Simulated assay, not measured.
Amino acid sequence: MTITTTDVAKSASPARLYRVGEAMELLSLSRSVIYELIRSGRLRSVREGRSRRIPGSAIAEYIALLESEAG
């Protein structure tokens, strides 16, 4: 079974905040790549106390950005 970016976008609930580790699994990217995307502004994130969280809507937006760049 092949997982597509649409499947990932559907599994990323817009109302949910994901830990970096969860975003790593959803996007199949390393921790350093996730943090680089956050630093560059390509992946939005929020701070909750001392931790960094990534909104589900930000994951969906990043996937849409990748698809628009590819097509």
Score class of each variant (00 low, 15 high):
Ile63Tyr: 04
Pro14Arg: 14
Lys10Thr: 15
Tyr62Phe: 15
Val46Thr: 11
Val20Glu: 08
Thr4Tyr: 03
Thr5Ala: 12
Met24Asn: 05
Thr5Gly: 11
Arg47Asn: 03
Tyr35Met: 14
Ala15Met: 05
Ser32Gly: 05
Leu66Met: 11
Met24Cys: 11
Ser28Gln: 14
Glu22Ile: 06
Leu66Phe: 03
Glu69Asp: 02
Leu65Trp: 07
Lys10Leu: 15
Ile38Phe: 03
Thr5Pro: 09
Arg47Thr: 04
Thr2Asp: 11
Ile54Tyr: 02
Ala23Asn: 04
Ala9Asp: 06
Ile34Pro: 04
Ala70Thr: 00
Arg31Asn: 12
Arg16Phe: 13
Leu29Val: 13
Glu69Met: 10
Thr2Gly: 07
Glu48Ile: 10
Glu67Asp: 11
Ala70Cys: 03
Ser51Leu: 13
Leu26Arg: 12
Glu25Val: 09
Ser30Gln: 13
Thr6Ser: 12
Ser13Asp: 14
Glu22Gln: 15
Ser11Glu: 11
Arg31His: 14
Ala58Asp: 13
Arg52Gln: 06
Ile63Asn: 01
Leu37Arg: 09
Gly56Cys: 08
Ile34Lys: 08
Met1Gln: 08
Val8Trp: 01
Ala9Leu: 05
Val20Trp: 01
Arg31Ser: 07
Gly56Thr: 09
Val33Lys: 10
Leu65Met: 14
Tyr62Gln: 03
Ile38Lys: 01
Arg19Ala: 12
Val8Lys: 11
Leu26Ile: 00
Ile54Val: 14
Glu25Trp: 00
Ser11Phe: 06
Ser51Gly: 05
Val33His: 14
Ala60Asn: 14
Arg39Pro: 09
Glu22Met: 04
Ile3Asp: 03
Gly71His: 07
Leu65Asp: 12
Pro14His: 07
Ile59Thr: 01
Asp7Gly: 02
Glu67Phe: 01
Arg39Asn: 14
Thr6Gln: 14
Arg16Gly: 01
Glu36Asn: 11
Gly49Arg: 07
Ser30Gly: 15
Arg31Val: 00
Glu61Val: 00
Ile59Trp: 05
Arg44His: 08
Ala70Leu: 13
Ile34Phe: 04
Arg44Ser: 13
Leu65Asn: 03
Ala64Phe: 01
Ile54Asn: 05
Tyr62Trp: 13
Ser45Gln: 08
